[in-house]
């Protein structure tokens, strides 16, 4: 490595190393500079203001505050606010694969070729809606609020997997020895899962307006949730084996088998959580 390359690499390393630090300084320094004006500035948002809310999960890591997709807050008169959260997740994955396996027995000049086919289909949809009414007890630079609301949603999940091997390996050259028979079809599996849920959201927290349109939120949450689900699983295949069941003794040969499960169930839970978040207000009138 030349000296120039070394210098260039170390320069990149320094840039990469200090990028988060520079980013943090650029975030925090304006807050420090504006700290002196905190006491005089009007820090509460106007009625009718809207905000996007973000959850702070760690250093330089944010996500939606309520729900996985977006979290929105609207302030009304009389210190009330409405929070809406949404989770929407849709995922499809379909793949097909063909496999060719060749085993060469060089001593007897024989090849065995096996062909396989597999397919995989996966689909998933998650949808949840959060609505919450917030009552702001004290609307100052530091606000205290209580919240109550509803959550409802559905989850749909489907997976279909198939793997087929050709019925008999075929021999390209001389059949000089007795080849073992292989199973002709490996399991086809199918899973479906549907659920819906309904719950109550309770919150108690604080909001600190360190800029007129930016606030930090610390909040205790409890989610009381009931869900119902339906589950269907199945697989089938065929093979060759000795079955020694009580009804069919010492049977040897091919067979098809299948298993199906149809299930339904319900769950209930109380899930506490603590969130740290940031709200950015817009649509301010002045």
């Amino acid at each position: 490595m030349t000296r120039k390359q070394k210098y260039s690499n170390s320069e990149n390393y320094c840039c990469r190393k200090y990028t988060p630090v520079f980013f943090l300084i650029s975030l925090i320094f304006p807050m420090i500079i504006s700290a002196g004006s905190f006491q005089t500035a009007k820090m509460k948002p106007d009625s009718g203001s809207s905000a996007l809310e973000f959850q702070i999960n760690g250093l330089l890591n944010i996500s939606s505050y309520q729900g996985g997709t977006i979290s929105y807050k609207k302030k009304f008169k009389n210190n009330n606010a409405l929070r809406l959260g949404l989770t929407f997740d849709k995922y499809n994955n379909y793949s097909e694969n063909d496999y060719l396996t060749e085993i060469q027995y060089s001593d007897i000049d024989t090849s065995v070729i096996s062909l396989s086919f597999s397919s995989y289909d996966y689909r998933r949809i998650n949808l949840a809606v959060y609505t919450q009414y917030l009552s702001i007890i004290r609307q100052e630079k530091y606000s205290t609020f209580l919240g109550i609301g509803l959550i409802t949603g559905i989850n749909v999940y489907y997976q279909d997997q198939d793997y087929v091997r050709n019925s008999q390996p075929f021999i390209v050259s001389n059949d000089r020895f007795n080849l073992p028979r292989v199973s002709t079809r490996l399991p086809f599996s199918n899973v479906t899962y549907n659920s819906y849920f309904l719950g109550l959201l309770l919150s108690a927290g604080f909001e600190w307006f360190y800029r007129p349109n930016i606030s930090l939120t610390a909040e205790y949450n409890s989610r009381i949730q009931y869900g119902h689900y339906f589950d269907g699983d199945g697989y089938d295949g065929d093979g060759y084996m000795v079955i020694r069941k009580n009804r069919i003794d010492n049977y040897q040969g091919t067979y098809d088998y299948s298993m199906t499960t149809i299930a339904s169930g319900y769950y209930y839970s109380v899930i506490p959580s603590v969130k740290l978040g940031m709200s950015i207000y817009f649509n301010r009138t002045h």
Binding site: I243, G253, D256, T261, I262, A263, S264
Partner: peptide, 11 residues
């Protein structure tokens, strides 16, 4: 969870 499971063997 309540489930009905069915195993079938076709020889």
């Amino acid at each position: 969870i309540n489930a009905d499971k069915k195993y079938t063997y076709d020889c």
